[in-house]
Amino acid sequence: MKPAALVAIPPGRCVTLDVRAAIRGGKEPFDEIMAVVARLAAGQALVLRAPFEPTPLYRVLGARGFAHWSERHADDDWSVWFYRGEPSAPAAAPPADATARGTLDVRGLEPPQPMMAVLERLETLAAGERLTVVHDRRPTFLYPQLDERGFAHHTEEPEPGLVRIVIERTAR
């Protein structure tokens, strides 16, 4: 059953993006999806048609304040609605201090998508605010970008295959 917040969005406010043919053709639609998401106005929803359930997107768009609701038409045909209004459950526990701006889980994304998602999110941080990034490896190429942009960062690896990077904006 569709959530109430999604039912309240008129069909005319839904932007449909069908990536089934692109994926079957061997293309990676992540950038196209993110571009459409970036253009969504307030009150609009994205309806994504995909040949599988795009679970990595749930984390990425959930961190941007999008909730999701999915409908499976067949094994290789899914519709997923992304809409604002109900926060998704975070994949990892966010930091508890007042300066934290949440968690961004980029596991399961191929380079450079994690870097793009992190750098985009960091632009919204104010001085002193922190973002926790959940990764499956140490992002060697991200660190110099953080340094150049004036972010302090600390990395910990609580278990193999799980890396947490706490990033703090120290200067504007």
């Binding site: 990676e28 992540f30 950038d31 571009a35 450079p112 998508q113 870097m115 793009m116 992190v118 750098l119 985009e120 999110r121 960091l122 632009e123 970008q145």
Partner: peptide
């Protein structure tokens, strides 16, 4: 990246 629209791979 993050400041301006950039192409993907």
């Amino acid at each position: 990246a993050g400041r301006l629209p950039v192409p993907g791979l």
